[in-house]
């Protein structure tokens, strides 16, 4: 166990945000889901007791009938905002006094940094470069993520859960987003803590060896199965990718129609909403981990080989 190496990575000033994320994301996830659980319990209670449902104020926070439902922004909100700005300012000052922004040697095109890493928030994309060619990892995937995020509200046909934390009423939407979010953070963590010189996989705690030799040979699935000529490689790849989309689509369909309530939401979903959701769920949320697995476990690089591009 090389604690020194681990400390070198974790204490690099530019990696501080990732270390912070490792705490912040679980903390806020916990905070959100704690409230979701409380709200779900309240909902269960009210479902069981219609008389109570009619009179209850329907929040988990205390409320008495003579309390006003609204408060003045001045001072009740503004003091919170003021406090927040002060805390952030103090935090920034302390952070800026104790930790210096990194400055390396002057830029030198003749001396490649190893590992040369993108800024931490793009490390997910850089890590994806291992699993996909640059045109997918660097261009198509980011575009799909942005469009998928923008399409998200239009695909969610569930009318419940506006303005309060809940899990039971919105399992599909919350689950899908959390899955993507956790995946994105995980790729960043892999890119930061695990990828060393030459973008080689070094488990946390092992020494980054600049001369590390990688013996695994990456293989292409068609070649592995003895298909060595075009156009059969392309045909075979298309069949495999098509089969993946069908299988993944079935899996996702099962997941989003799991319970009675989920089926009710599914009834409200239009065909267009359903197909677009399937497309993004398969292309972003599933293809990424699947490609990661077949690469890391089976050392398979490409599935679809064509003369112009490979997937």
């Amino acid at each position: 166990m090389d604690w020194g190496q681990l400390w070198t990575i974790a204490s690099a000033p530019d990696n501080v945000p990732i270390v912070a994320l490792l705490f912040l994301v679980p903390f806020f996830t916990w905070m959100g889901f704690k409230q979701a659980r409380a709200n779900d319990r309240l909902a269960e209670k009210l479902e069981a007791d219609p008389a109570m449902a009619k009179t209850h104020h329907r929040k988990t926070w205390p409320w008495k009938p003579h309390w006003s439902k609204e408060v003045h922004v001045w001072p009740f909100l503004l003091r919170v905002e003021f406090l927040a700005t002060i805390i952030v300012t103090v935090l920034l000052f302390v952070w800026s006094i104790t930790l210096n922004a990194p400055l390396e040697e002057p830029s030198n095109p003749n001396l490649t940094m190893n590992p040369s890493k993108a800024p931490w928030y793009f490390l997910g994309l850089q890590e994806m470069l291992v699993y996909f060619d640059p045109w997918i990892a660097g261009v198509v995937m980011p575009t799909l993520i942005i469009i998928g995020l923008m399409a998200f509200p239009y695909l969610d046909s569930n009318p419940l859960g506006v303005g309060y934390y809940t899990w039971k009423q919105r399992k599909v939407a919350v689950g899908a987003f959390c899955w993507g979010f956790v995946m994105w953070i995980s790729l960043i963590v892999i890119g930061t803590f695990i990828r060393g010189p030459g973008w080689v996989w070094f488990w946390p705690g092992t020494t980054w060896d600049h001369n590390a030799a990688v013996y695994e040979v990456n293989r292409d699935l068609p070649v592995l199965l003895g298909i060595k000529t075009q156009p059969w490689q392309a045909v075979f790849g298309l069949v495999v990718v098509g089969a993946f989309y069908v299988a993944a689509g079935l899996l996702i369909h099962l997941l989003i129609t799991w319970s009675k309530f989920e089926k009710k939401i599914f009834e409200r979903t239009t065909m267009l909403q359903y197909l677009v959701f399937q497309f993004f769920a398969i292309s972003i949320l599933l293809s990424m981990p699947v490609k990661l697995l077949i690469r890391q476990v089976f050392r398979i690089k490409y599935v679809l080989l064509t003369p112009w591009f490979n997937i």
Binding site: D14, V16, P17, A20, L21, L24, V25, F28, T29, G32, A36, V88, L92, F93, W95, S96, I97, L99, N100, A101, W120, Y121, F152, P153, D156, P159, L160, G161, V162, G163, Y164, Y165, T166, R170, A173, V174, F177, F181
Partner: peptide, 29 residues
Amino acid sequence: NMHRWAAHLMVITTWLHMFRVVLTGSYKT
């Protein structure tokens, strides 16, 4: 330093803001 760290922090707060908006269903109609 402050410019650098504030920039990093802004990326984080943007993500967490989006996360909250999703968890509370605030993006809906």
